[in-house]
């Protein structure tokens, strides 16, 4: 059995003149939570649709559980729980109807767990979907995605429409529980604090390309904000190897640096500068730096 649930190699996709994905390679390891972040139109949903087999790969290949999702959709989709960004579920059904309907497609459906989630999400089984608020519809989608206890949970912007309580407490708990059971969660989000809280590994997607794909710990260890004090006033930011962004004037310049701390000390010495301040970066800062740099 492969250690990777999702294996994407050099995936490219365009829609007319728009290049949605360019040479994307991504490996999602079994177990854990994988966060996919990117600005609007970065290609997150397109990538997810390739994983679900709704789009075929124009270039490269996509493999999920070692299967091709386009040619074997039943084999792949039966093991995936998917929550779409647009919460597109049939509006004319009642909550209980959609649960009964969806249950028939998954042999591993856990009726007890579904009932538990129904109660947890405070959903009325007799309510029609069209009468639900966006947040309630999101909860129904989440329930449907989770109740068959999928090996891979794919959540496309799961927080969209959910209130802070559900988002922070329940969603976090569900994602963590799923991951602790040895299953895999792949989720895309704009909310970087949420990704920071939940994800074990993060990929930054920008304009159809993967800019960064690393475990969250490694990212935080690698990226620092550092302020250097130079002996002489500088008109431009002196070139610091490993720096991905710089800001300042005169003698004091602040860098976003990616690399080992020892290397940074050596590089600062080489520039005849002193490290006067050094601190960690948030995921938000790292994301913005990468996007601006690209």
């Amino acid at each position: 059995m492969s250690d990777h649930v999702i294996d994407i190699e050099h995936l490219s996709r365009s829609f007319g003149k728009t290049q949605a994905l360019q040479d994307v390679s991504l490996r999602v390891p079994r177990g854990g939570v994988y966060g996919l972040i990117g600005s609007n139109g970065a290609g997150k949903t397109t990538l997810i649709k390739h994983i679900l087999g709704s789009h075929y790969a124009q270039g490269g290949s996509v493999s999920v559980f070692g299967l091709d999702p386009v040619t074997d959709p039943v084999g792949v989709l039966g093991r995936i729980g998917y929550m779409s960004e647009d919460r597109d579920i049939p509006a004319w059904m009642r909550v209980q109807e959609i649960i009964g309907f969806t249950r028939s497609f998954y042999p591993a459906w856990d009726t007890g767990y579904a009932a538990e989630l129904l109660e947890l999400f405070e959903l009325d089984p007799k309510q029609k979907i069209q009468c639900l608020s966006r947040g309630q519809a999101a909860r129904v989608c989440l329930l449907l995605a989770l109740s068959h206890r999928p090996e891979l949970l794919v959540l496309d912007e799961p927080s969209s429409g959910l209130d802070p309580v559900i988002r922070r407490d329940i969603l976090t708990a569900i994602v963590k529980t799923t991951s602790d059971d040895g299953r895999t969660v792949l989720f895309s989000s704009h909310l970087l604090d949420e990704v920071e809280r939940l994800a074990d590994r993060v990929a930054i997607l920008h304009e159809g390309r993967i800019l960064l794909d690393q475990p969250l710990e490694t990212i935080f260890e690698s990226f620092h904000r550092v302020t250097l004090h130079f002996e002489d006033a500088q008109l431009e930011a002196p070139g610091l190897e490993g720096a991905i962004q710089s800001q300042g004037n005169g003698r004091d310049w602040t860098y976003v640096y990616c690399g080992e701390k020892e290397q940074l000390t050596q590089a600062a010495k080489g520039l005849r500068a002193q490290i006067v301040a050094q601190g960690p970066l948030s995921l938000d800062d790292i994301f913005v730096c990468h996007v601006q740099r690209s």
């Binding site: 679900l52 959709p73 989709l77 039966g78 779409s84 597109d88 509006a91």
Partner: peptide, 21 residues
């Protein structure tokens, strides 16, 4: 309805992702 996102062949993203041959 605000949740409607009909596509040709009546395949909304929800029914499209159900594991049925």
């Amino acid at each position: 309805p605000k949740t409607s996102n009909s596509t040709p062949f009546e395949m909304c993203s929800f029914t499209d992702t159900l594991p049925i041959s």
